[in-house]
């Protein structure tokens, strides 16, 4: 490029570059409060947890500043006290398995109950929808612990379900629901159902119901319209709802504690145990990181799968 001709051009470029720089600086400034919160309230604590998982437990809780990988070993394995043989930590594995299993079941059940509910609300007249949504959010007004005790009142041996069934003569002795996996799942389903219904409803509200009519018009029966038209179109809501139910279920603490009793622990209870009575902070930290890793992997697989299956449709 000839130097003489480009002098005015490069001047314009300089001015533009300066404007760009100022713009970028302005953006960082605007984002800084959020960035500070993320740094100190999310990344910082996470880093501390990660750090603790590689340290040695102190005798009465807390940590000793001595690097160790033992906590991570303990997550999956245990050493026999007498002969030093290494075996899988059965207790941890069963808790891990129960957590994943119950969270998946809760998510599936929430979808099964939430989908028709959201569809029902979305197909009501506009004024009624707000009322229904309002009713869905009412449980949020009450403390989680109190709601969980309410569930207990329903399912315990002298509770509503068993009393009614016995009075009707359908059973002679109460069905044991409390302190089982079923109880935990029912409790979580009740607590997290609105988190499924709300995003599903948001998707369905945007659904163009003429597309449903078009489906019927083109010889699709009710099930086919659901599978081929409605589900693909409200998929963002299904994904969001499932994530919102699965993640808190996996880390649930109060519900398994109250409804599962001491025996049927989930990951959240196990972690709490290590930081409390177990006095093994590094193990608690390692388990926390494990829980996070499971959530991240599950999310990645799920989102990849969900996006992929919709991609195939238009291929």
């Amino acid at each position: 490029m000839p130097v003489a001709a480009s002098s005015s051009l490069s001047r314009a470029a300089l001015v533009a570059a300066e404007a760009d720089r100022r713009e970028i600086r302005g953006r960082w400034l605007l984002a800084s409060p959020a960035l500070l919160i993320i740094l100190f309230a999310a990344i910082g604590p996470l880093f501390i947890v990660l750090l603790f998982s590689f340290l040695t437990p102190a005798d009465y809780g807390g940590i000793v500043w001595k690097p160790s990988g033992h906590a991570w070993f303990q997550v999956l394995f245990q050493k026999d006290i007498f002969d030093d043989t290494t075996t899988f930590a059965d207790a941890h594995l069963s808790i891990l398995w129960r957590s994943v299993k119950l969270s998946l079941l809760t998510t599936i059940m929430a979808l099964a109950f939430g989908f028709p509910t959201a569809y029902f609300i979305a197909t009501r007249p506009e004024k009624m929808r707000d009322i229904w949504l309002f009713l869905i959010t009412i449980p949020f007004w009450t403390n989680l612990l109190i709601r969980t005790f309410a569930v207990q009142e329903v399912i315990r041996n002298e509770g509503i379900i068993n009393t009614v069934l016995i009075k009707l003569g359908l059973i002679s002795s109460p069905i044991q629901i409390m302190f089982t996996d079923v109880a935990i799942m029912l409790g979580m389903l009740y607590v997290y159902l609105p988190l499924m219904v709300l995003p599903l409803y948001a998707s369905m509200e945007k659904l163009d119901f003429r597309l449903v009519e078009a489906g019927y018009d083109l010889y699709a029966n009710r099930f086919q319209v659901l599978r081929r038209v409605i589900v693909p179109l409200v998929k963002p809501g299904i994904i969001a709802g499932s994530i919102l139910v699965f993640i808190p279920s996996l880390g649930a603490y109060v519900t398994p504690r109250v409804l599962g009793g001491g025996k049927n622990m989930m990951l959240g209870n196990l972690i709490e145990l290590q930081f409390g009575q177990g006095r093994n902070w590094p193990l608690g930290a390692a388990l926390s990181i494990t829980l996070m890793a499971i959530v991240m992997v599950a999310l990645m697989v799920y989102v990849r799968y969900a996006a992929g299956s919709s991609e195939n449709r238009h291929g």
């Binding site: 003429r210 597309l211 078009a214 489906g215 038209v229 238009h314």
Partner: peptide, 13 residues
């Protein structure tokens, strides 16, 4: 069969 006013084509297909 119907041709709809706003066509109602399936956007995911």
């Amino acid at each position: 069969n119907t041709v709809f006013q706003n066509y109602a084509l399936f956007p995911h297909m």
